[in-house]
Amino acid sequence: MSVVQWPHRLLTLDDWAALPEDPEHRAEVVEGVLVVSPRPLFFHQRAVNRLTWLLDEQTAAVHSAMGEAEMVIDFSPLTIRVPDVLVTAAALADENPARVSAADVLLAVEVLSEGTVRTDRVTKFSEYAEAGIEHYWIVDLDDPPSMITYRLVDGEYENFGEHTGKVSLDFEGTPIPLDLDALTTRHAQRP
Rank of each mutant, 00 (worst) to 15 (best):
S168R: 14
H163D: 08
H187Q: 08
V30A: 08
T185S: 06
L183W: 02
S126I: 11
A91E: 15
V109P: 01
S113H: 02
S168I: 15
T52D: 10
D120V: 03
A93T: 05
V85G: 03
E158T: 15
A188N: 00
G115Q: 06
L41C: 09
G165Y: 10
F75T: 13
T164D: 12
M66K: 06
S37H: 07
Q58P: 07
G173C: 08
D181R: 03
E134D: 11
S76V: 10
D179W: 02
E114S: 07
E162R: 11
T184I: 02
G32W: 04
A60S: 15
T185A: 04
D56R: 08
H25L: 13
E134Y: 09
G67Q: 00
Y150M: 14
R39Q: 15
V35N: 10
P40D: 08
L54P: 02
H8R: 14
A65I: 04
T88S: 10
E158K: 12
K124Q: 04
E156Y: 09
N49T: 13
A131H: 03
S126V: 14
R46P: 07
D84R: 01
D179Y: 00
R186K: 05
P23E: 15
V36E: 07
M66Y: 06
I80H: 02
E70Q: 14
D74S: 15
L112K: 02
L34K: 08
A27V: 14
V111I: 10
D154C: 07
V85A: 00
A93R: 00
